[in-house]
Nucleic acid binder design. Structure first.
Lengths: 216, 216
DNA sequence: CGGGCGTTTGATCGGGGTCAAGGCCGGTGG
DNA sequence: CCACCGGCCTTGACCCCGATCAAACGCCCG
């Protein structure tokens, strides 16, 4: 489903990608790797797997999630082109990553990345910087989860989506993920998410446009 | 206030401090710095300040927090001896840090740390590892905030406290922070925190013991 | 055409927020 | 020494937001 945000033009300035030149060199490292394709719904890796690889998203959208012992599901975040997966010094991945849409990504073995970055310390620097960004995002998410009302959560989520998709000029935000994904990301139920979106549309804050579901 | 947890002995094994030998060398870097004393209630630095220093907590308890524009307060986490403050490559601190009890800490200028770690890359390695631990903790916190009931939150918080204070054999957990701190950490109100603790005591899960308030 | 999945919408319930009152303790000043 | 005050905590009454239970719709696909 896509949704046209009347408030789209009010979106804050996107946080600048730091060190465009350095990011260049980090992604250039990946650009030599072959592109792998993942089908929608398939997992890239699972929480607890040996963390042997780092990935860069080339195309598509993914979800990072954890399942609690009692079945409750938490979406840690959504990954989009340019994002890195599996950046951690832990031996095991902290969460499962699944493709929402068909995905293209490039893989780098951690072992090889270590040796590469040993020769070029600025690579490790960039990784560090990425991790700090992710840390800041995690803290913002904690604020969102602990202190925002359902309305604020959903509106904030839509504005985040619109910010990430700035490249297309129209204030139309595509939501490749399901309501369940959004709900598990915001700490709400699918019913509340659906109701809130409907309410925002009623307020004139946004308007629904066509449905374009991707095949499961 | 302190609180005796009957369930204390059930606390899980504390997540091992990784690389005891490396931690040694990292803290040995700090050990050459003079100890600074901070009064209870005083701030070490503020959200948005130039991030010019890294700190190591020697003694006492601190809170890391952010204030939303509308006054809502979020406790990101509590800091205890051995923890590092201000570890981030960002130019500005992401949150305010205040002393809860009287605190002792050692300071290291970021500039100097950079040059030190340039000569000894394993130092950067350790910092990286710390950041990953913090990342994992942040994700656990997100799970806590989004999907746990008030009972689970408070019980989980008390168990965390008991784990951190394992050194004293008695299953008594000291809570240096106020109810407001706990509430803002768990995404609850002080009334709910208070009620829940009372209920846990009634269930026999815990028992209240003496009140030892530190002077403001 | 029928079945399944994702979504929307409605009705009801309950956990936790809100408002309010009172208790406990330490500090302070008469 | 005691009365007062101000923080912090506890407890009670009430209410509302969002969860839960339930039903129906739209779209895709067999």
């Amino acid at each position: 489903m896509s949704l046209q945000l009347v408030a789209g033009h009010q979106a804050r300035v996107a946080p600048a990608v730091p060190f465009a030149s350095e990011t260049q060199s980090l992604s250039s490292l990946f650009s030599r790797q072959p592109v792998e394709r993942i089908a929608a719904g398939a997992a890239v890796f699972w929480e607890g797997d040996q963390a042997n690889h780092i990935f860069e998203v080339v195309e598509g959208t993914l979800r990072a999630l954890r399942i609690l012992s009692d079945g409750r599901r938490i979406i840690i975040g959504f990954l989009r082109p340019g994002d890195l997966l599996g950046v951690s010094l832990k031996d095991h991945y902290l969460y499962t990553v699944e493709a929402i849409t068909p995905v293209e990504l490039r893989r780098f073995s951690r072992h090889r990345f270590e040796s590469e970055s040993a020769r070029a310390p600025h690579l490790k620097e960039q990784l560090f910087s990425r991790l700090c960004d992710e840390m800041a995002a995690a803290q913002d998410q904690m604020v969102l989860l602990s202190r925002r009302s359902a309305d604020e959560k959903v509106a904030g989520f839509l504005l985040m989506m619109v910010r990430d998709q700035r490249e297309n000029r129209r204030p139309v935000v595509e939501l490749p993920m399901t309501r369940l994904d959004v709900a598990d990301y915001l700490g709400l139920t699918i019913e509340t998410v659906s109701r809130t979106i409907t309410k925002l549309a009623g307020n004139g804050a946004s308007r629904r446009s066509g449905v374009t579901r991707s095949p499961s």
